[in-house]
Structure formats: structure tokens, C-alpha cells
Computed example of a mutant assay.
Amino acid sequence: MLFDSELHLSGMSGTLDHVMLRVEDLDESLDWYTTHLDYEEKGRWEAETFTNVYLGPEDLHEDGAVLELTYNHGDHTYEMGDAWGHIAVRVPEGELEDAYQQLMDEGVEDYRDPESCGGRYAFVKDPDGHEVEIVQRNQGATWSLDHTMIRVEDADQALGFWTRKFEYEHTGRWESDTFANYFMKPKDAAEEAMAVELTYNYDGRTYEMGDAWGHLAVRADDLDDYWESLMEREAEDYRDPASCDDRYAFTKDPDGHEIEILPSDFESPE
């Protein structure tokens, strides 16, 4: 992943690289993720007005995603909104109850236990209120990022965006009486790669973006070529590479979720 040359291997262009959350107390958030999810620091970017810290499990897969915590220096508070849903982390099949109980024993708040979720998953919250789902998977490191859920107002439009702009395809779907979930990844992505989960509620509701969530980041083999393809496919020209010192770029999905494009060899500035 970012800042570590040993992790810049042959990840497929378009793989999700990280998800960014904003936090109000960096030390408290770092302590929560390193203590309860056994995350370690993968990289850090200290700027004049903010700090970014990248976290993940010790044995993170080469195509696995990391968590970016952004701390803006000074006294800042954030609105959660409801356009972003949650991040999901993995535990092995059959270990959900034990993993959740471990978190409870460590003092994590009891938000949605496995029993209330039909024994299939569970939820906790981090110190800033970001929801963290615990899912059962036999691939990827324990606690590694499985997916990031975002809410969309038009499922057809959102699915078209990810398939046409980014060449993602379905890796799973779940349709119920009131909502549908669609999981998307690049074609032939590793099982250990993070997916984006598109949640569509059938009742026509709208969402507030808030500012407690930042963006998803997609890894590109070549930033300029990838950006050119996005522009040819009529993605939003939000922040082009030139406006970002040719180091990264940003587009947005139809619902306004920001998506950063990073070159695979991205490194933090000195």
C-alpha cells in the first residue's frame, strides 16, 4: 500500500487502495484501531494543517486496502451524515461470536451484537461514531477491510457508474423487500481486495453527505492514462491531476461520494 515499497507489488489497476475517515482525536482513534483491531501504522503524512495516518493488519495482502485516518489540526467536529454507511472488517468463519465478545471484554461499546443480526454479522462504532461491521470471511487477514458501504439514490445509475467508468463488476448481491446491496470490484480482483457495497433503499429517500467520511481511493497503474479514460467515459472532472501537483486526482460518483485516483507508486511528500 502507500509509502511502503515492499507493498507496491503487481496490484491490478483500479483496485481499491483505501478509505478515508476524519477523526477528532487522532491519538484516541489510533489507540482504538491498534488495540481492538490489531492494526499497525503503514504510513503517515504530516502536513502543516493536517495529519494522515494509514493503518492495516500486519499481514495485509498486497491487494488489500488500508484505512486512512485524517486529523485536521485544531478543534474540529464533523457531521456523520447518512450517505456513507460503514466499513466492514473480516474474521474467520465461525469466529464471529468470539471476536465480538473479545471487543466487548476490551470495553468497546455494544452497538449491534451477532444475535440481533441473525448470527451473520455484527456492528461496533469507533470513537467518532463511524460504524464498523464485522463479517465472516475465510480470505484475508483477520480484521482486514472487506468492503466499504455507501448509500445511493438510483441503483441503475450507480451500477452503471462503477461498471462503465471503473470497469467494476458484481461480486455479490442481496435483494430484500425494502433494499438491495450490490458488491463491486474490478474484474479478476483478488478475494482479499476491498469491495464497494452500494446500498439502495426502495423508498426513494435522499441522503446527506456530512463530512465525517472523506473518500474512497482507487489505485491506478498510470495516473494520467487512468484519468484520461475516466474523462472519456464522462466521469466528473472534480480535481484533475494538474490541480493536485500531478500526484493524484479526484472524481465523484453520481451521489457525490469522492473517489481519489492514486498512482501505484504514490509516495508521501518530504
Rank of each mutant, 00 (worst) to 15 (best):
S10N: 14
S10I: 12
G11V: 14
M12E: 12
M12A: 15
S13R: 04
T15V: 12
L16D: 01
L16S: 02
D17M: 10
H18W: 03
M20K: 13
R22N: 13
R22C: 04
V23H: 02
L26G: 03
L26F: 03
D27Y: 02
L30D: 00
L30S: 01
D31H: 14
D31Y: 12
W32T: 05
T34A: 08
T34V: 11
T35Q: 13
H36R: 09
L37D: 07
L37W: 07
K42I: 04
R44C: 05
T51R: 05
N52K: 14
V53E: 01
G56N: 01
P57N: 00
E58I: 06
D63L: 02
V66F: 04
V66K: 03
L69K: 08
L69E: 03
H73V: 12
E79F: 06
M80C: 05
G81F: 09
D82F: 09
A83M: 15
W84Q: 10
R90W: 04
R90L: 10
L96N: 06
E97F: 11
A99K: 08
Y100K: 09
Y100W: 13
Y100A: 08
L103M: 14
G107Y: 08
G107M: 13
G107N: 08
V108T: 02
D110P: 06
R112A: 11
R112D: 11
D113N: 15
D113V: 07
V124H: 02
D126P: 01
P127I: 13
P127D: 11
I134M: 14
I134D: 03
Q136C: 11
G140I: 05
G140M: 07
L145N: 01
D146M: 01
D146L: 02
H147D: 03
T148A: 15
I150A: 06
V152E: 00
D154N: 13
D156P: 03
G160V: 00
T163R: 08
T163H: 03
K165W: 00
K165A: 12
E167C: 11
E167Q: 12
H170T: 11
H170E: 15
T171A: 03
G172E: 07
S176R: 14
S176K: 15
D177K: 11
T178M: 09
T178E: 11
A180S: 08
Y182R: 04
P186Y: 08
K187W: 13
K187S: 15
A190C: 12
E192D: 11
L198H: 03
L198Y: 01
Y200F: 15
N201Y: 09
D203T: 09
D203H: 11
D203E: 12
G204T: 04
R205V: 11
T206V: 10
G210S: 07
A212W: 04
D221S: 02
W227C: 11
L230N: 09
L230I: 14
E234R: 09
A235I: 06
Y238S: 06
P241L: 05
A242I: 03
C244W: 02
D246T: 03
R247S: 12
Y248I: 05
T251A: 05
D253K: 01
D255S: 12
E258H: 15
I261K: 06
I261F: 04
P263R: 00
P263N: 02
E267M: 08
